[in-house]
C-alpha cells in the first residue's frame, strides 16, 4: 500500500476520517441548538410550558431517586463481585451488570409489565406509577454504579491494603467503611453521575411500564417520543433540556474520572 501512497497522505487520511467522525458526533448534538436559534422565541416559550416543566421535574427526581437506590444497592453488590470468588461469578456478573446496560429498551418494559403489571404473579401492580418509572430506570442505569465501583474495589483488593487494615484489627465491615468506601469516593461519584445521566435518557421501560401520563409519569424522553412525530418546538425544547443535562453530567463524570486516574 505504501508503494502507492506516501506516509504523509496516509496520515492525512487518518486525520480526515477522525475529523469526519468527530463532525458527525458533535455536529449531531449541536444541531439542535442551531435549529433552536432559528426559532428562539418559540423554544424559549416552550421552556415555560407546564407539561414540559413537569416532565423535566419528573425526569430529574426519578433519576435522582434511581441513583440513590443504585448507590444503596449497587455498592454492596460491587463489594461482593470484587471480593468473593464463587462458581459462575463471571456469567452472573455479565448478566447482572453488562446485559441491562445493552438491553433492548422495549423488552425491558415488557418484562416489567408482566412481572409487576396487572397480571403480576406477585399480585403487585405498579403500572403507570412513579415507582414504575424508578424501577425501569434502575434496571438500565443502576449497573453503571455497580460496574464503576466494582472496578475500583478490585484495584483496592489487588493492592492488599484491605489486608493491612485487617492486620491492624479492623473486621471486614470496618475495612469496607474505612478503606473501600473512602478510597472509592471519586468512583462512586463518577458512577452515580453516569447512572443519573443514563436514567434521564431511559425510554423503553418508562414508555411501556410507567406509561405517558402528563404530570404523573411523563418524563422528557417519553414526551419527546410522542411529540416528535409532529416536530413541535415543544419536542425540540424537551430534547435540548434532556441532552444538555446529560452533557453537563458527563463532562463532570470525565473530570472526576481524570482526577481519579491521577490518584
Amino acid at each position: 500500500m505504501s508503494k502507492f501512497f506516501s506516509s504523509k497522505s496516509l496520515i492525512f487520511l487518518l486525520y480526515f476520517l477522525a475529523g469526519c467522525t468527530l463532525f458527525f458526533l458533535v455536529g449531531t448534538i449541536l444541531f439542535q441548538y442551531y435549529i433552536a436559534l432559528g426559532s428562539l422565541d418559540k423554544v424559549l416559550a416552550a421552556f415555560t410550558n407546564d407539561r414540559i416543566l413537569s416532565a423535566l421535574w419528573l425526569s430529574i427526581t426519578s433519576s435522582i431517586l434511581t441513583t440513590i437506590f443504585a448507590i444503596i444497592f449497587g455498592i454492596p453488590l460491587a463489594y461482593v463481585f470484587a471480593m468473593k470468588q464463587f462458581r459462575g461469578k463471571v456469567p452472573l456478573e455479565t448478566i447482572a451488570v453488562d446485559v441491562p446496560q445493552t438491553f433492548p429498551p422495549v423488552a425491558e418494559g415488557m418484562i416489567f409489565l408482566l412481572m409487576l403489571g396487572p397480571a403480576s404473579p406477585f399480585h403487585l401492580n405498579l403500572t403507570f406509577t412513579f415507582a414504575a418509572l424508578v424501577i425501569a430506570k434502575f434496571f438500565i442505569a443502576g449497573p453503571f454504579v455497580v460496574s464503576t465501583v466494582t472496578r475500583r474495589f478490585r484495584e483496592i483488593q489487588k493492592s492488599g491494603i484491605n489486608l493491612t487494615a485487617r492486620s491492624l484489627g479492623a473486621n471486614p465491615f470496618q475495612v469496607f467503611t474505612t478503606v473501600f468506601i473512602p478510597m472509592s469516593l471519586t468512583d462512586i461519584a463518577a458512577g452515580s453521575i453516569l447512572c443519573w445521566s443514563r436514567a434521564m435518557g431511559e425510554l423503553g421501560g418508562s414508555l411501556i411500564f410507567a406509561g405517558v401520563i402528563p404530570f404523573k409519569t411523563e418524563v422528557l424522553p417519553t414526551y419527546i417520543a410522542l411529540d416528535a412525530k409532529t416536530l413541535t418546538t415543544g419536542a425540540l425544547a424537551a430534547t435540548i433540556l434532556g441532552t444538555t443535562a446529560s452533557m453537563l453530567a458527563l463532562v463532570t463524570f470525565k473530570k472526576l474520572t481524570l482526577k481519579g486516574e491521577n490518584r
Binding site: L163, T164, R166, S167, G169, A170, N171
Partner: peptide, 8 residues
C-alpha cells in the same frame, strides 16, 4: 487476621 495482633 484481625485477632492475631500482628504488626505488618
Amino acid at each position: 487476621i484481625e485477632e492475631r495482633n500482628i504488626g505488618y
